[in-house]
């Protein structure tokens, strides 16, 4: 079966992982890859979905979320990872948990050269800023990777970034 014909379930798998983890606040800068997940979070009355102007706001916000006794997650595209760097210093110094879900651009089959500088350095940059980085390229493993990442960050107080590969998210075929 071609990948295009397979039902896409990983956004729902992430939402299910959020429910199991007890996520109550979801901060995001929109990405096409997260469209369905963002919709699900807005529709859930037990969650507060907060649209940001820039990703670094979400890092600061989720520090406050944890201070107040709730759990949250930050959704972004790889181009937003660089915007977070200085704020990640707060996370590291205070040992705040932080669950970041990054949909990747600039890797598998990318057509836009402007996406490559950030996409190719996302894992390195987040790693150097103190985050655990877990890359997932298999759609069937996205949900479990998010759940495992959540367990790790909320138990250890170390930031965890789950990079959802462009192979999972899909790319535009410009040969057509």
């Amino acid at each position: 079966m071609k990948p295009a014909e397979k039902a896409i379930t990983w956004p729902q798998d992430i939402y299910d992982a959020f429910k199991k983890l007890g996520i109550r606040q979801v901060a995001y800068v929109p990405d096409a890859g997260h469209t369905q997940l963002i919709k699900s979070c807005h529709a859930d009355k037990s969650m507060k979905a907060v649209s940001l102007t820039t990703e670094e706001e979400g890092v600061a916000m989720l520090a406050g979320t944890w201070l107040g006794g709730e759990r949250g997650a930050l959704l972004m595209q790889s181009s937003g990872a660089g915007n977070c760097i200085n704020m990640l210093g707060i996370i590291q110094e205070c040992r705040f948990p932080l669950l970041m879900l990054v949909t990747m651009r600039g890797e598998w089959g990318e057509f836009n050269p402007w996406q490559l500088p950030m996409g190719q350095s996302t894992a390195d940059i987040l790693g150097r800023a103190g985050s655990v980085v877990q890359h997932v390229d298999d759609a069937e493993r996205v949900g479990e990777t998010v759940f495992a990442g959540g367990q790790m960050t909320f138990s250890t107080g170390r930031p965890v970034a789950v990079l959802i590969g462009q192979r999972v998210v899909g790319f535009k075929d410009w040969s057509k």
Binding site: R24, Q25, A27, K48, V50, E56, E57, G58, V59, A60, M61, L62, A63, G64, T65, W66, L67, G68, G69, E70, G72, M87, I90
Partner: peptide, 14 residues
């Protein structure tokens, strides 16, 4: 630049 947004996350949680 973090203070206001830390406040927002805290206000939503409490």
């Amino acid at each position: 630049g973090a203070a206001a947004m830390v406040g927002l996350g805290l206000a939503l949680a409490q």
